[in-house]
Amino acid sequence: MSATRTELAARLAVYDRLVEVGIGRRPEVAAALADADCTVTATDVFDAPTPEGVRFVRGDVVARAERVRAGGDPGDPYRVDAVYALNCPAELQRPARDVAHAADADFLFTTLGFEDPVLPVERETVGGETLYVAERRR
């Protein structure tokens, strides 16, 4: 795992329960969090292999956000302290934030690199990466 991914995992390990949105084929951070005794669930719209200690739930955060906006509960697997997404495209930032906030969880993410966040954030430099922390509702 790269030094930046190691530092991202260390930063996220302050949370006990996390869900990674869109794990895809890069489960290193989720694995490191599980190794740090965090409870980690990974989600994606496609089946994705996950390392030992990481639970996988196939799901669509956009559909979940629509359910939340209609007054529904974010439900499992979003009963966590933090929702995070790595290389999060602009179109998933608001839905993931909405689901996180409905669960009273923080939302942290990195972008694809060429995109700026599309929602209000605080910026942290973690390793060589910018980690964005979505502002909480006022």
Rank of each mutant, 00 (worst) to 15 (best):
T4A: 02
R5F: 03
E7Q: 14
E7V: 02
E7N: 02
L8Y: 02
L8T: 01
A9M: 08
A9R: 03
A9N: 10
R11G: 00
A13G: 06
A13Y: 05
A13H: 06
V14D: 08
V14S: 06
V14I: 05
Y15L: 01
Y15Q: 01
D16H: 14
D16P: 08
R17N: 05
V19H: 00
E20A: 01
E20R: 02
G22F: 02
I23G: 02
G24P: 11
G24S: 09
R26G: 02
V29H: 00
A30H: 00
A31V: 10
A32I: 05
A34S: 13
A34I: 02
D35I: 00
D37H: 12
C38D: 05
T39I: 03
V40K: 00
A42H: 03
A42L: 02
A42N: 03
D44Y: 05
D44M: 05
D44C: 06
D44V: 03
D47R: 14
P49H: 07
P49C: 08
T50Q: 03
P51L: 11
G53K: 12
V54P: 00
R55I: 10
R55C: 09
R55S: 13
F56Q: 06
V57C: 05
R58E: 15
D60C: 13
V61T: 09
V61R: 04
V61H: 08
V62E: 05
V62P: 01
V62Y: 01
V62I: 11
A63I: 06
R64T: 15
E66M: 09
E66T: 09
E66V: 07
R69I: 03
A70V: 08
G72Q: 07
D73Y: 05
D73Q: 09
G75I: 05
D76M: 03
P77S: 08
Y78I: 04
Y78D: 03
R79I: 02
R79F: 07
A82Y: 08
V83I: 07
Y84T: 06
Y84E: 11
Y84F: 15
A85N: 08
L86V: 10
L86Q: 13
P89K: 09
P89Q: 08
E91H: 14
Q93F: 14
R94S: 07
P95Y: 07
P95D: 10
R97M: 15
R97E: 14
V99T: 07
V99A: 09
H101K: 08
H101P: 09
A102H: 04
A102T: 03
A103G: 15
A105Y: 04
A105N: 04
A105Q: 04
F107M: 14
F107K: 07
L108Q: 13
F109T: 01
T111R: 12
L112H: 13
F114M: 11
F114K: 10
E115C: 07
P117A: 12
P117R: 09
P117V: 11
V118P: 11
V118K: 14
V118E: 15
V118A: 14
V118W: 07
L119G: 12
P120Y: 07
P120M: 09
E122D: 14
E122W: 11
E122F: 05
R123T: 09
E124H: 15
T125P: 04
T125W: 08
V126D: 04
V126Q: 06
V126I: 15
G128H: 12
E129R: 15
T130L: 13
T130Y: 12
T130S: 08
Y132R: 13
Y132W: 14
V133M: 13
A134H: 00
E135A: 15
R137C: 10
R137S: 15
R137M: 10
R138Q: 09
